[in-house]
């Protein structure tokens, strides 16, 4: 498997300005589920999927976690490797990571703890048919 990147971009930093697809600007810590849903609705070609966390494991790469999701209506299995501080947006809950303490330390972004069963927002390409 490819070596995962340890670099997390600054858009997760508290105070980062995020532009929604509607043109509205919001701070990353103020985003709500509806902001993502509405943005996907007005975006051409992108759709929001519900991605349920089914397992959280240690990665073979030190300093990473291996997350397993089932994605969308098809319940497709997708796995990704991320640093434990990587935030995911959980429906109805908000930003969540495997290590809320590290996320707070590195990004000052308040987070819940990401757990098996959490339903995260992800995107994929809209089907053409």
């Amino acid at each position: 498997p490819p070596v995962p990147s340890a670099h997390l971009p600054s858009h997760f930093m508290k105070g980062a300005i995020i532009q929604l697809a509607t043109g509205e600007l919001k701070r990353v810590e103020d985003l709500q589920t509806q902001d993502f849903v509405r943005s996907a609705e007005v975006s051409g070609g992108l759709k929001i999927d519900s991605s349920t966390v089914v397992d959280i494991q240690e990665s073979q790469w030190p300093g990473f976690v291996l997350l397993h999701f089932v994605v969308g209506e098809q319940q497709s299995k997708v796995s990704i490797e991320v640093p434990p501080e990587h935030p995911f947006f959980v429906y109805g809950q908000g930003w969540s990571s495997c290590s809320p303490g590290r996320t707070a330390q590195l990004f000052s972004l308040p987070c819940h703890r990401l757990q098996v069963g959490d339903v995260c927002i992800s995107i994929s390409l809209q089907s053409l048919n």
């Binding site: 858009h11 980062a16 990353v28 929001i48 991605s51 999701f69 995260c120 927002i121 995107i123 390409l125």
Partner: peptide, 25 residues
């Protein structure tokens, strides 16, 4: 005088993972 500062603006979709299952051929 206040110097103008550029503020980075990030698109919403950069915050959420792109989780697309690999398509079978």
């Amino acid at each position: 005088n206040v110097e103008p500062r550029s503020v980075a603006v990030f698109p919403w979709h950069s915050l959420v993972p792109f989780l697309a299952p690999s398509q079978p051929d």
